[in-house]
């Protein structure tokens, strides 16, 4: 027997404050890419009680994802959108989840992301990260984008930071250490970056625009 929507809200409001919880429950966030960053960002936001999550990824769960992404061995081969929706629904049964199994491109981003004020860039490849950030900032004058860059390797977790690049563009990560440079991705360090991104989104929802 799961708690009612009202019971869940009350439990969250008791911890976060009622005004903050109302803001969270009325917020819509898009998470673009559901790998190590996106799966963990989505879970943090669902646990905080964000009302609407739009999760987007074209890929399927692979055995190579299990070192850092929030999927399970019994989910191998199914779309990440479907696998993550299962998990999010267990964590936050009253969160409104929209799942799109598509590859985001400059052509479809304007229609796909039109409904969310807050957007998380959580892709894997550097050129795709740049594409999403550029397209969102060029297309929408009023949306916020929080991107991740540089979380590979066993370098110090303390190198990972959040900074406001300008206006509506925030960047999390160490900005240096990518997988392209031969460094592997560890759950612990990827989660630090994912937590930075999710936390910046929560701060923006609260009305705080500084890092």
């Amino acid at each position: 027997m799961i708690p009612s929507k009202e019971e869940m809200f009350a439990a969250l409001a008791e911890r976060h404050g009622t005004d903050m919880q109302k803001k969270l429950s009325e917020a819509s966030v898009a998470v673009c890419g559901l790998g190590g960053l996106g799966s963990n960002i989505s879970i943090a936001l669902a646990r905080a009680g964000v009302g609407r999550l739009h999760i987007i990824d074209f890929d399927k769960v692979d055995i190579s994802n299990l070192n850092r992404q929030q999927y399970f061995p019994d989910q191998l081969g199914i779309p990440k959108t479907e696998a993550l929706e299962q998990t999010l629904s267990r964590i936050a049964p009253y969160c409104h989840i929209t799942a799109d199994t598509v590859k985001l491109t400059p052509d479809n981003i304007p229609s796909m992301l039109k409904d969310e004020k807050f957007i998380c860039e959580a892709f894997d490849k550097a050129d795709q990260k740049a594409m999403l950030v550029n397209t969102v900032l060029e297309t929408y004058p009023d949306k916020y984008i929080v991107a991740g860059s540089g979380m590979a390797g066993t370098f110090s977790a303390n190198l990972i930071h959040t900074r406001r690049v300008a206006g509506r563009f925030y960047l999390c990560g160490d900005e240096v250490n990518g997988v392209a440079e031969g460094e592997g991705l560890f759950a612990s360090r990827v989660l630090v970056c994912a937590a930075h991104q999710a936390h910046m989104i929560i701060r923006l929802i609260s009305g705080e625009t500084e890092c």
Binding site: F123, A126, G148, S149, V165, E175, G178, V179, L185, V190
Partner: peptide, 10 residues
């Protein structure tokens, strides 16, 4: 001018 160069990983 602020140039952000992305690196891979996610």
């Amino acid at each position: 001018v602020e140039i952000v160069g992305f690196v891979g990983g996610g």
